[in-house]
Design a protein around this nucleic acid. Structure first.
Lengths: 210, 210
DNA sequence: CATACAACCGGACTGTAGTCCTATTAACCG
DNA sequence: CGGTTAATAGGACTACAGTCCGGTTGTATG
């Protein structure tokens, strides 16, 4: 599967493991990720402390924090693989999510696909986005989604501030927001609402009338 | 100024001080709020610990936490007054924010007015919304804004899920979201983007064409 | 006014995130 | 293969949020 169809900037935001890593560092990295995954599975993400992860991985606390920054970074590393899967489907998968469909259609497809990703990893994403202040907006993944939507919205609505609209469309996709809305609506209703929002945003207030 | 024009449900969400409070409790409540306001002014909201507030107010930590729950509750109490001001302007102030204007116009007026409130109290609001998980969605104020928007959107777009759209419109008004967007856009641009979003949401994807 | 009761007060206590410093260890080069 | 250097490992340490409980102070009642 070639990724040459997507913009070069998006590729740069896909992250991945560090370029050159010392042997012991790589070993510990794996041990930590395995320990974290196991503990999260057993006790739920929020209930697991960083101390517990360090102990289970048989690694010092300093190591844990230096490698992953904080809890949100650790969780982000765990999410990395599946995140990249969605990113690859956007860059070079079949339309309408991948290239080939119209911009408005691709926006709707992205919102639907991201919602599925969200419902599948809600606990991890919520911790990843809220463990430290502004964490959601700092990580590369957010910049990837934002850039992707910005490009599509600039095409669909050339007269609007596409970059802002992209942020606005990502706002209700925040894990904490979805968690709160889940208290009164089920996933299907949320997806329907998001689809309506995406339709309104891509169409614009006066579209279809020209 | 009469508040009889607004729905009764909205009034119930306005909160206010506890009904009957012991004299010493009231005294401590005032001391805490004054100390917190002073410390926040001097050092910024995020830099002030609850210990510091308790010490400055000459009150025990237990008192502080029992009265306000946690840091987000303390900050919410500080915001209460100005929050109620905006709420009263919505319930019984002049249009288009208050009753009298069309639903779509009132939605746009609300978004603009809330954005101003947000920019004026961004630090306090950010702490209030993020100090504890899901804090934003638990407090009465959020329910007030949400109910207000739901009523208006149900009128403007009877075929849509107005309650969900109300959540979606409040999502980019989260303090943390606005803080992140402020790194690349100024308040005027954000207000313009929000106005465009409100217009798109109130109009709907196919409006103006019938 | 005295008594009983409930609410309140305050600080000691616990658990956690995150920092810092020193010995260790891997990679590189002669 | 041995020496040099810079990154890494790990645990002791700090600061903070939030809890708990014994003592105290208002408030209602006879």
């Amino acid at each position: 599967m070639s990724t040459s169809e997507g913009p070069r900037e998006l590729l740069a935001l896909m992250g991945g493991p560090p370029a050159r890593e010392r042997a012991d560092a790589a070993r510990n990295r794996r041990k930590v990720l395995e320990a974290a995954a196991a503990l999260f599975r057993e006790h739920g993400v929020e209930a697991v402390s960083m101390d517990a992860v360090a102990a289970r991985a048989e690694v010092g606390k300093g190591t844990l924090f230096r490698r992953f920054g904080d809890k949100s970074g650790l969780v982000a590393a765990l999410l990395d693989e599946q995140e990249r899967d969605l990113q690859e489907r956007i860059l070079s998968g079949p339309p309408p999510l991948g290239p080939g469909a119209g911009a408005a259609e691709r926006v709707r497809a992205f919102v639907a696909a991201y919602a599925d990703y969200l419902f599948g990893h809600l606990d991890l994403l919520r911790v990843s986005e809220t463990a430290s202040a502004g964490a959601r907006y700092r990580i590369g993944a957010y910049r990837f989604w934002h850039l992707h939507l910005s490009i599509l919205l600039a095409e669909a609505r050339p007269e609007a501030d596409a970059g802002y609209l992209a942020h606005a469309l990502l706002a209700p996709l925040a894990a904490e927001h979805v968690t709160a809305v889940l208290r009164e609506r089920d996933p299907a209703q949320i997806k329907a609402g998001l689809a309506g929002l995406a339709a309104a945003v891509t169409a614009g207030p006066v579209s279809g009338c020209s």
